[in-house]
């Protein structure tokens, strides 16, 4: 696990985040002041009705979408104060993404998809040097997720559950301090979703990365020691008494 940057206990720290969209002549305030700090190693479930702004918060926290106001610290680094290229590097090294629709590259095999963040991180020379080691790590992840026979398959040859497991392996290849997942089981039947979650939490227990999981799934929320509830762009509930501030 990545060493914490100096002076922080939080893998992810979101302060005063506001986000509004201009839709025609109207301004839509989707997030109205969000403060959320997730300590290293803590899994957090983010729940709330559809349209509450959960996905928008995840995108901002994952440094994919710029907030209208507020700051995001990932592993202690103020992500929105960086140059676009430096921010891309933080996304690459410190944030693992899992999406509802897997978002694997269709032309790449399962193994190549898992290695993609490493390919992005390294120059051709570096990659060649680290290739054996990276491949071994990727194959190890895939094997732990029960995909050892599937490494050469394209996403189109995999089931939904298998695809999500590949996406999970991809998110974890860099051993990031925080994993962000938007309804990771939303597109899977409950048994398959259950199996994916089993693997995710197994992995979390050994690696101790922090997680921010958006879910409608009560069973998933129940697995997390902390649940944050959103409504209309605000946090209205946080089971972690001190964590909401």
């Amino acid at each position: 696990m990545s060493a914490p940057a100096s002076g922080t206990r939080h893998a992810l720290e979101v302060r005063g985040i506001a986000k509004s969209f201009q839709v025609g002549s109207e301004t839509l305030d989707v997030l109205r002041g969000i403060d959320l700090a997730i300590p290293y190693g803590q899994p957090v479930a983010l729940v709330g009705s559809s349209g509450a702004g959960k996905s928008t918060l995840l995108h901002i926290a994952g440094l994919l979408e710029r907030p209208s106001a507020g700051s995001v610290r990932v592993d202690g680094v103020d992500g929105w104060n960086l140059s676009p290229d430096e921010r891309a590097k933080v996304r690459n090294r410190k944030v693992g993404f899992v999406f509802q629709f897997y978002h694997l590259l269709p032309e790449l095999s399962a193994l190549e998809n898992v290695l993609l963040p490493a390919m992005i991180a390294h120059s051709p020379g570096e990659y060649r040097a680290a290739r054996a080691q990276l491949t071994e790590a990727a194959l190890g992840l895939l094997a732990r997720f029960g995909l050892q026979a599937r490494t050469k398959h394209r996403p189109s040859q995999l089931s939904g559950g298998e695809r999500q497991r590949v996406a999970l392996a991809r998110a974890l290849i860099h051993d990031p301090p925080i994993l962000i997942a938007d309804e990771p089981t939303g597109n899977l039947d409950s048994a398959t979703g259950e199996r994916v979650l089993e693997l995710l939490f197994d992995e979390q227990r050994t690696r101790h990365f922090a997680m921010l999981l958006v879910t409608h799934d009560a069973k998933l929320a129940a697995r997390c020691p902390r649940t944050v509830t959103m409504r209309d762009g605000r946090i209205v509930g946080d089971t972690n008494g001190s964590g909401a501030a």
Binding site: L64, A88, K89, R91, R93, L105, L116, P117
Partner: peptide, 14 residues
């Protein structure tokens, strides 16, 4: 794919 690449840390230049 382009969106995925950005999410995984590809730059615009990349």
């Amino acid at each position: 794919d382009i969106g995925i690449l950005s999410a995984l840390g590809a730059t615009r230049g990349g």
